[in-house]
Design a protein around this nucleic acid. Structure first.
Lengths: 232, 232
DNA sequence: CGCCGATTTGATCGTGGTCAACAATAGTGG
DNA sequence: CCACTATTGTTGACCACGATCAAATCGGCG
């Protein structure tokens, strides 16, 4: 009897590539860990000794300059994979944004296991290729878009990404109302702007009737088309 | 007798994972293609029907907004892999920056071949993970660094990346003199700044005695430490 | 030599950063 | 449940960096 039997991401994480025997073997080398919001999991520049699957919660990947400027270079959701297998060092920090549960492996154990299970590597490869595409698209936003375009793009992105988080209704398509899993500071760190700029743009969107902001964390999209036009 | 026998990147590209029999099989589904500087290979949003290995030359990967702003999201060198296997669409354009030679595969052929050769997928996975790390580091630069820091970082990056291009001396370490494979416009597109800003920063570095710029494309680093300090 | 594209240089302007004050919300203990 | 505090978010004033527009200069090539 393994933890995995009851794992909510069993069929969405890379583990979906494995049959029951294999899952049991994997279970033998992994362990669960619970993180509180704000807890670090991996530090930038650490030796790469850990990899993990996200079971529940949201975590951020960050890079920082020596003088403390921080950039969020990725956000991981349940079923996503964390860490740098087959390599010596990790180039970014991983920190829980919400309370989170992860399934943790020693990198060396995972590397060995992956090597013996090509289907697992295949899943991981697809995931990594997807993530690379997403990351590259984000570069265009960071480098070329105005603050207005950044915020509009971000909100649209969220309304799509958070669909399975709110697994409530089986309707397709993006959400028109959702709770942001980020503070204003974190949104700034994602978009490469300051907290004040995020705030000003949000206020403006509300004033123009494109959004409603019932609470600080809640967003209701009133005019999606306007947002799309604005996203550039 | 296959093309691959004489391929200069045979032992550096992902093909290095294959033995001679396998290489022959791969050779059967690939073909060489020559590109002139400026030639496009793949268009953003195309159906993903091609993948390739770079044999010689340098190519850029770009994303663009509808209104024509362009961002270079990646640069590929000999032995690097191009394209999006196991997926439906490519999210960026690929264009030759210099005259180039590539080894081209139909995506479906490559996908099938890769599936049957886990060692190949493994190499590709490592490469993709490396590229993802590099891309994420670049996000910090795009989002948070000043023009001065961007240019300094870029020059240091070039002095390291171009080492094997100039396979002349067997000395390790970065180059202190090299020819940029990019125009000022392209440097701007990599750093997310305008051509004028690149030019001004370069001029300033020269005036301060940190660089010498014998020709428009040649860079000689006179004070590497100053550049490092400046890169932030 | 003369042409054309690439680059440099200069002048001006606007976006978003910075600094500072204020407001709202969440969290804590009486 | 409310007062009090700490934290987070909002708003305003000002300024700097880099964009934009424009002109001059360089360099390669016929």
């Amino acid at each position: 009897m393994s933890y995995c039997d009851t794992c909510v991401v069993r069929n969405r994480a890379i583990c979906a590539a494995l049959d029951n025997n294999e899952i049991n073997a994997l279970n033998g080398i992994g362990r669960r860990k619970t993180l509180a919001a704000g807890d670090p999991l991996i530090w930038e520049g650490d030796d790469s000794t850990l990899v993990a699957n996200v079971i529940d919660g949201i975590l951020k990947l960050t890079n920082s300059t020596e003088d403390g400027r921080e950039q969020i270079v990725g956000v991981v959701y349940p079923a996503d994979f964390i860490g740098r297998p087959f390599g010596k060092t990790t180039s970014h920090s991983v920190t829980a944004l919400t309370d989170a549960k992860v399934c943790l492996f020693a990198r060396s154990d995972f590397d060995r296991f992956a090597h013996e299970h090509p289907q697992l590597e295949h899943k991981l490869l697809k995931r990594t290729l997807d993530e690379l595409d997403r990351t590259r698209s984000w570069m265009l936003l960071l480098a070329r878009k105005s603050a207005e375009e950044k915020v509009a793009t971000f909100l649209l992105d969220m309304s799509e990404r958070l669909v399975d988080a709110t697994c409530a209704a089986p309707h397709d398509g993006p959400l028109d109302e959702f709770d942001l899993p980020f503070s204003r500071q974190q949104i700034g760190d994602i978009l490469g702007v300051t907290i004040e700029t995020v705030s000003r743009q949000m206020t403006r969107l509300k004033r123009d009737g494109i959004l409603d902001l019932p609470t600080r964390r809640t967003v209701r999209i009133l005019d999606r088309q306007a947002l799309v036009d604005m996203a550039g």
